[in-house]
């Protein structure tokens, strides 16, 4: 699935938007998500998952190509933690375990 297919979903399911408006709206949603994370703010999408930030200390590493020792600088990284609902949706047969989180 690409952004174009998400735009198509907005266009056909939500309705009332032109294709151009649908595309602009989808761009805006992802831009706003990006801006939020760029402010150092976590993003929690209930039913889908959480985009969380982690600060990593500087640590020793290796260039996998050459094997040379290099320093991996300190950095902030983004992790996606899938919602229990999303995990349950991907595993319909384990519904007995997942039933307590079903909507």
């Amino acid at each position: 699935m690409t952004k174009a297919e998400i735009v198509q979903a907005i266009y056909t399911r939500v309705g009332g938007f032109s294709k151009k408006e649908s595309a602009d709206i989808v761009d805006l949603v992802f831009d706003m998500m990006k801006q939020t994370l760029g402010r150092g703010e976590k993003l929690k999408i209930s039913g889908f998952g959480n985009f969380v930030l982690r600060d990593k200390r500087q640590r020793p590493g290796r260039n996998p190509q050459t094997g040379d020792a290099i320093e991996i600088s300190e950095r902030r990284v983004l992790k996606f933690k899938a919602s229990q609902l999303l995990k349950a949706a991907l595993n319909p047969r384990s519904s007995a375990q997942a039933s307590h989180v079903e909507r």
Partner: peptide, 9 residues
């Protein structure tokens, strides 16, 4: 955003 604190609960 490393220089900013992590927020959002």
């Amino acid at each position: 955003s490393r220089h900013l604190p992590i927020s959002g609960g």
